[in-house]
Design a protein around this nucleic acid. Structure first.
Ligand code: SF4
Ligand code: SF4
Lengths: 145, 145
DNA sequence: TAGTTTTGGGACAAAATTGTCTTAAATATA
DNA sequence: TATATTTAAGACAATTTTGTCCCAAAACTA
């Protein structure tokens, strides 16, 4: 049950890492993040560019530059990130890939799929980066490929 | 929020179609299904081969041949199909793609992801092809690309 | 037996995703 | 100014997924 693309997965891991560094001020370099999380630097950079363009991150070039969250981590929710990286229709897709979700003419699986999507969206809506960052207590999250 | 591969989506649509043809006996040809559901014949054939090899379908060649469900549709559940087409670890995957899911040392998003997966699995466990087939009442399901 | 229908299986092509690399632009520091 | 650091942007390659095609095998019909 794979829900997120790799690009989103990497982006999320990186954002959670940033949120976990509560005490730090200023920018965090993408190089540091990619090294600590063992993520391809260039791949992550592209994802971060998207996040920057959409106002999740702000970036700064040059020595001591890097990226920073544009808002406090407790005001950034998973839904915000996913909407940028996967599209705003992320929670509107049909399980069977049919176009034009059916408030009218629902397809056979609609009943349970709609409920499942809503539950998922509810979780994403209410989970902030801060909440996730707080749970980064051991090294496992940082070290795994 | 895309959960299933195209191969699985097509396979499922086709199985639901078969289940919806309650009155029919004997084999249904893949050609008929692919035509009615507007699915690539060869692509669907490969998916059906997998299902046949894993005991979801039985097939028969030659005129009036085709495929048939090996069990009554009310005894085939979404989980059965998904386990074959997506792998038995379908409901065991991490949201962040980390290996070795953590009953121990859970990663930051574990709490809510575990609940979401269980809810989803519960739905799949309890939804049979018969149940879905019964809901195929209009033409929408059959005709859409 | 010959010809037709249908699944089986594999080669192959196209497209999407993932990953790598190079160069440019911005910024800091000496 | 020259050099080092860091993000921006896009070309390019590798891999996976998706889709197409061809031919063989099985079964029926005449
Ligand atoms: S009615 Fe619901 S389940 Fe059916 S196609 Fe639309 S979104 Fe998907
Ligand atoms: S503990 Fe849960 S969220 Fe963390 S890696 Fe394992 S399955 Fe994923």
């Amino acid at each position: 049950m794979r829900v997120l693309s790799k690009a989103t997965v990497y982006g999320l891991r990186a954002l959670v890492y940033m949120a976990s560094e509560r005490e730090r001020t200023g920018y965090v370099s993408i190089g540091e993040i990619s090294e600590r999380l063992n993520i391809s630097f260039h791949f992550l950079t592209k994802t971060f560019q998207t996040l920057t363009q959409h106002g999740i991150l702000e970036s700064y070039r040059g020595p001591n530059g890097g990226v920073a969250l544009t808002k406090p981590a407790d005001q950034l929710f998973l839904t915000d990130i996913v909407h940028v990286l996967e599209g705003v229709d992320f929670f509107d897709k049909c399980l069977l890939g049919l176009p034009g979700c059916g408030t009218f003419a629902p397809c056979p699986v609609h009943d349970f799929w709609k409920a499942a999507k809503e539950a998922m969206k509810n979780e994403f809506d209410n989970t902030s980066l801060a909440e996730l960052g707080e749970k980064v207590t051991d090294d496992r999250f940082r070290l795994v490929a």
